[in-house]
């Protein structure tokens, strides 16, 4: 293990690091939006739309991201739809993450006590008001553990973007290994880079979960 090699590679890893963070952030926000829409539609059993979204959820969560990316990146151009690699990555991540986030939110929304919902209905709230003031605030708090797990999962999934040559962290490391064969050094930096992102995040999310649990039981 040579520190000189590691030092020289750092500027490249820095670029990969920023790109991984950027793609993860866009992917997570996009997935959360898709997830909230899907779970609210399913919670209120909006006719037809809920069946369509159910099909999407099943397809999304039962197929690998790599195959989804290949489909977007290689098969779509054959159908006349050309997208840049980064856009494919983001769409793929949101397509995959949407169903995971939907499951997370649904778990939270379904955990909101029936009494709360019925009381809301009894005082004449519309579906929208029920969602906005009763189900969402309480359900969101309940779904935080699942969302935290999804966030970490999605960041890790960005490593698969390497297959469509997006120069994120993993791709940077593989490129460098291909060029200079210093696999020990580059893999070491790669693991450290993921650790720098994921360890603090996982600690923050655990603290947040604790805070929420404390709030839920109203101690």
């Amino acid at each position: 293990m040579s520190w000189e090699i590691i030092k020289q590679s750092l500027p490249m890893f820095q670029q990969g690091f920023v790109l991984t963070l950027y793609l993860s952030l866009v992917g997570i926000i996009g997935s959360a939006i898709v997830g909230i829409i899907c779970s609210l539609v399913q919670y209120f059993k909006v006719p037809i739309l809920d069946k369509i979204l159910q099909v999407y959820i099943e397809i999304s969560k039962n197929t690998p991201l790599l195959v989804q990316l290949f489909f977007l990146y290689y098969a779509f151009p054959a159908m006349g739809i050309k997208l840049s690699a980064q856009l494919c990555g983001i769409i793929g991540l949101i397509f995959l993450g949407g169903s995971y986030m939907a499951a997370g939110f649904s778990g939270g929304f379904n955990g909101v006590s029936k009494k709360q919902v019925e009381s809301g209905k009894a005082i004449g709230l519309s579906n929208w008001q029920l969602a906005r003031y009763v189900v969402f605030p309480q359900g969101f708090a309940l779904s935080i553990p699942a969302l935290a797990a999804n966030i970490i999962f999605l960041i890790k999934e960005t490593s698969i973007f390497t297959v469509i040559a997006i120069p994120e962290l993993t791709n940077t490391a593989l490129d460098l290994i291909g060029l200079y064969y210093n696999s020990n050094e580059y893999l070491f930096v790669l693991v450290v880079a993921y650790a720098i992102i994921l360890i603090p995040l996982s600690i923050i999310l655990t603290l947040l979960e604790r805070r929420v649990r404390y709030g839920t039981f109203g101690n």
């Binding site: 490391a173 696999s183 893999l187 693991v191």
Partner: peptide, 19 residues
């Protein structure tokens, strides 16, 4: 949990034979 599976595969694929 922390290390992505892609990276785990490469770690074992490169490090086992070399080290």
């Amino acid at each position: 949990r922390i290390v992505p599976t892609v990276v785990l595969l490469f770690l074992f694929y490169y490090i086992l034979p070399r080290q």
